[in-house]
Design a protein around this nucleic acid. Sequence first.
DNA 1: ATATATTATTGTATATTTACAACATATATT
DNA 2: AATATATGTTGTAAATATACAATAATATAT
Lengths: 86, 86
Amino acid sequence: MKTRKLFNRISVLRQERNISRKELAKKIGVNFQTVGYLEREEYNPSLDLAFRISECFGLPIDLVFSTEPMRPLSEELLDRKSQNGK
Amino acid sequence: MKTRKLFNRISVLRQERNISRKELAKKIGVNFQTVGYLEREEYNPSLDLAFRISECFGLPIDLVFSTEPMRPLSEELLDRKSQNGK
DNA sequence: ATATATTATTGTATATTTACAACATATATT
DNA sequence: AATATATGTTGTAAATATACAATAATATAT
């Protein structure tokens, strides 16, 4: 299978929460350089790792990872608000 | 990283849609035996493959894969209905 | 009964993910 | 300026996912 490049918001989410790669790495049980690779999108996580990361941020996988380039969270927020009529 | 065993509903979803492993395999671009491995939960898919499978079924990843054993879809449906007050 | 399609299983080879070490760069703090 | 912390990068080794072939088992249809 020719794997597609996937996109993620790990670095944004991590910085929002003010934690270092080392801290995040410890929480999800991987080496801190692995977080680096993922943030640079140099390779895709396993599904298990993707679940751990999403759980760590308290978000569904689809908000953290995507097959399409990630839009800024701020934009996404706007869209969801207008959809809900809020 | 010691990977956890993950659970999925691939075989149920596939049978609901009346397609063989071979057909599903072709759609998602993997070998048909790979579908077998996944359905038997002998190993976890990559995140990319998990995305392909979910897309193929038109469902969010979380409905197809989980860190917890899968409940029957019928039960899940009941819960969602009562949550929505429908 | 036999032909056909589907699934299970096992083994080997390749690709990708992850760990880990080493070192460079940057940034902030004292 | 020196120290500490965070990050980027490269290389190698280990673990896991995937491809693929072969064969067995099961079911379905004719």
